[in-house]
Design a protein around this nucleic acid. Structure first.
Lengths: 196, 196
DNA sequence: GCGGGACGTTAACTTAAGATAAGAAATCGG
DNA sequence: CCGATTTCTTATCTTAAGTTAACGTCCCGC
């Protein structure tokens, strides 16, 4: 008896692998729905965090703390997988915090449940590979942007690419953090661009 | 009849997965030894590059070209896997070039051969996952460094971390590129640090 | 061993980002 | 709807990186 609440997750996974009913039924018992109020933490720095989420509604940010300052390095939107990948994989305390920027609704499961599927199912192992590859490709491109583009170019990149929603819904001082600059600097870049 | 030339690769793979003889024999027929003279290209921008290498000897750099300028973003040493991961995975032309900085000796195989193993062997599929995870973790840390640390801090990071060999053997103008700054700027940072 | 090229440093100048502070604008909670 | 907080902009000053160019050194090939 498949629960329709979980369907968006099944569809998202199906974009990575061909998933039959039997495969899906391996995972479904591990799923739960979870609601997070605005400003609460999905992942907290210092804790070993093994929970993986799939965001149905709302958005979240992912930040590191240094000298008391928060550096926001990633945003999550509907349809994204959310986790402290490093903490889940390595079973070590998370160095990052993931905070709900709005009220959020997620489907969650424990990474250990997925790891069990890795052992028993080649299909799920493949899913794990494809997710990791997807992640690596995104990170590589992000890194190249940081190394090769100026702050202004990185901001322009955000404006047209498919990442446009980042700027639409996100307060500017978080965006500036994502770009690796200060809020003041982003404001100046925007002012410069308007004159052109 | 296992060829001892390929042993270092088998050992490297064994650090990721438990590999029995049968598993290994699936891969071995696809392996070749390859020598690259200094300054030749292992991967060339614009070509679809599906070759994966395992570096036995020598070192290589990985760079992107922009406005005629080369930006070196990665270095490879003995025991590293070398490939244009993105080009191999997505079967699209490589955006980067990988050049031998010294005479190099590698074990190479085609990524398609590995992909065939993904289909027939859960063990090799797992290897693919673990490699991708390893890569993603490294990229995440690199990205965080670029976002959170100043150029000077990034340079100091290079000095103590396990990445020390990067500075030992690599010309400074490549290192500066890796750090995301100009050679002149790196020279100044070094001069500043000496005074302290 | 000589000439040329690659590499690193230094200097002078330009440009842009960081820090701090103040004020305007928008948002939120009651 | 109002007051308080958050967010964004603007301005000033400081600091450091980019650019260009000159110079010295080292290394390599011929």
């Amino acid at each position: 008896m498949p629960d329709p609440v979980f369907l968006p997750l099944r569809n998202a996974i199906s974009r990575f692998i061909k998933l039959n009913d039997a495969d899906w039924q391996l995972l479904e018992p591990s799923l739960r729905e979870k609601k997070l109020p605005k400003q609460s933490h999905f992942i907290t720095e210092g804790k070993v965090e093994q929970e993986v989420g799939f965001l149905l509604d709302g958005n979240m940010r992912h930040y590191y703390t240094r000298d008391g300052e928060e550096k926001t390095t990633y945003f999550y939107f509907e349809g994204h997988f959310v986790s402290s990948y490093l903490s889940a994989i390595t079973n070590t305390p998370s160095e990052l915090t993931i905070e709900a920027m709005t009220d959020c609704r997620l489907i969650v499961f424990h990474y250990k449940d997925l790891q069990k599927l890795y052992d028993v199912s080649h299909t799920w192992e493949r899913f794990g590979r494809l997710i990791a590859e997807y992640l690596a490709i995104g990170l590589e491109q992000r890194m190249v942007g940081l190394l090769m583009l100026s702050p202004e170019e990185r901001y322009l990149d955000l404006l047209d690419g498919n990442k446009q929603k980042i700027i639409e819904r996100i307060p500017q001082h978080y965006v500036s953090s994502y770009l690796g600059i200060t809020p003041v600097s982003l404001s100046r870049i925007r002012a410069r661009l308007l004159k052109k």
